[in-house]
Nucleic acid binder design. Structure first.
Lengths: 189, 189
DNA sequence: ACGAAATTTTACCATCCGGTCAGTTAAAAA
DNA sequence: TTTTTAACTGACCGGATGGTAAAATTTCGT
């Protein structure tokens, strides 16, 4: 049996949103990419926003899972961080689509107005919880004196996610270089 | 005499694109924000794309001008860089609108397909030339041994622009912290 | 095999959007 | 004063878009 319809729609939507952004794609376009009728998209996702929400959450899930997968295997925090960076870069290289989706829509998700969309607010919080996990990792590493204890975790986490993430649109910057730079930067001096 | 019509349209478009993105705003919306008839927008900018191009180029112009304004006043390269960082952060704080515009549309501009739009390609190159100037500054500083000579300029320039730029959507990270972090990072050890 | 529930298709609608155009106003040029 | 040109208006067009309703088809438990 082939993939389930809902899954096909989600994957097509992921590709479409990544390439053209939420407002740049029509539901019909997504439907035809998924090989289904437009109305069946609305059957599974009553609003276009719902479809986007599902795509966003699944994307962050996948990113977070991949990035923290190998972290638990290490006991030293500096090595956890090293693993995280390596997985992150690996993800950017191999899952360009998801990264483009995230980079392209990040602004609109993070800028969503508090009193505006409840649904967008949830997406913003999903992203923040992802960054929050990186912050916690850095905090713990600082507590254990494995990274310089007066590096501000929040800002460093931002630097990591933003600079690695946007690599996906800079084919000429080397992911390994970024990794080396960040690592050397974290080491105490 | 009030502002000229074309100028009013450009400013309204800048605000609109910053808040909702290119595909999230209609020309009519922009026109009404500018207090002019929709057709007069097309009178000055035959296509919506033309309007966006004008907004983008003026935004990068403004950013670049502001960031490099005080750089020439310094002779030491490390101080030039310090000035640049400070101006950059200053810009993010005081010109949120432009930064949101840039952050929101950066993905779509940088991802523009080579054989696709000639006009988008121009915008991509405009952005690249801006980053190129930062790279040159870093290179020169390295040549003069004022910053660690084996820091890869391209990657560091990316880290600077991406992390400072996206601060505009993270009201809880401190610009000054980023500045301190980047500066300490550039210092030779 | 049968009926009910889930899924898919067809046809449709109301609205919006980018863009055009014929024509008006106002100011500058002659 | 007449003519010309630039700036502006309002009405309109064709196509796209998000979304809906109902019929048709498939799936599945009994």
């Amino acid at each position: 049996m082939g993939k389930k319809t809902k899954e096909k729609i989600l994957e097509a939507a992921k590709r479409a949103f990544a390439k053209k952004g939420f407002n740049g794609v029509s539901v019909e376009e997504i439907a035809s990419m998924a090989g289904v009728n437009k109305a069946v998209v609305f059957y599974y996702f009553p609003k276009k926003e719902d479809l986007f929400a599902a795509v966003w959450e699944s994307s962050i899930d996948e990113l977070e899972e991949h990035i923290f997968k190998d972290v638990e295997g290490e006991s030293l925090y500096i090595r956890k961080i090293k693993k995280l960076l390596r997985s992150y870069i690996d993800f950017v290289r191999n899952r360009k689509e998801i990264m483009k989706l995230i980079e392209r829509e990040k602004a609109s998700v993070l800028d969503s107005d508090e009193e505006n969309d409840k649904i967008r607010l949830k997406l913003k919080n999903r992203y923040r919880s992802f960054v929050g996990r990186i912050i916690s990792l850095l905090n713990e590493a600082k507590r254990r004196k494995e990274v310089d204890s007066d590096l501000p975790s929040k800002e460093v986490a931002g630097i990591i996610t933003d600079s690695i993430g946007s690599m996906v649109f800079h084919p000429d910057v080397s992911p390994e270089m970024i990794e080396k730079v960040v690592l050397r930067f974290l080491g105490r001096r």
